[in-house]
Amino acid sequence: MRKFSLRTNLLIFLALLSAAITTLYPLFYVAMTSARTLEDYNKNAYGIPKFFTLDSFRILIENYSLGTAARNTVTVVGISLLTAIIFSSFAGFALAKYDFPGSKAMNWSFIAVMLLPSQILIIPIYLLLSKFELVGHLHGLMFVYIGTNIPFGVFFLKSVFSAVPDTILDAARIDGAGFFKSFFKIAVPNAAAGITTLAVLQFLGMWNELLYAYLILPDQSQRLLTPALASIGGRYTTNQPLVAAALCITAAPTLILLAMSSKYLVRGVSTGIGNS
């Protein structure tokens, strides 16, 4: 089943290559559009630009505070991701290796809310946050991201920590290692690849999130990148280089992350569906 003949190989390769071009060309086109002037775009939208300019990026940062949006996004995603991973790994480790009363029930409660759609949560969460005057504050959104990312984090890390051999944990225990020592010195180093995978997946989820970010931070001065992009894209349809530049700023970090961590992503997508 595995190999094709030379001719079939070539034909299929060309077919897949043209499919790959439909994925890559739009990205290339957006990148090129972002580096043109508006006049150049209006005269010659599809050719090679006469000269490249970073004007659209400058305008976005100076007039549309996209620099602030990027900084806010990094702050919110960074703190939420770190907190969610720490909470999830403690809980995942405890559920995997410490059989305490109620651990089964707790485990199921995490699984039960793992696939909860955000539409059911957004209304009560919005009302609760506004009651505590957290709407319009970065940490209001952080709470939401931490809360919504923990269930999958626990589920994922429980299976990761379960794979850490009991023998080495036992040995450490006999040598007098307590919870923290077993956790940091043995469990975490052994589960590093799994934790990285989870971090990559949840980074992408938070970075790309739109609904909560849009509703919980309504002020322009506090906006995150994705909602800022959505509103720029909705308002400035006649200035495509500007929209393209905003697309580049929003998409570049995720694409760079894909390039750097494709190994972890491939792994992360395939685990958790009971195939390992």
Partner: peptide, 27 residues
């Protein structure tokens, strides 16, 4: 040991309770 396990899992559980379970009921 069981108590340690419970304490380690508790923070995540409390966050999920207050930010997911409670809002579902509220919804």
């Amino acid at each position: 040991k069981q108590r340690i396990g419970l304490f380690a899992a508790l923070p995540a559980f409390l966050v999920v309770t207050s930010l997911l379970f409670y809002p579902i009921g509220y919804a």
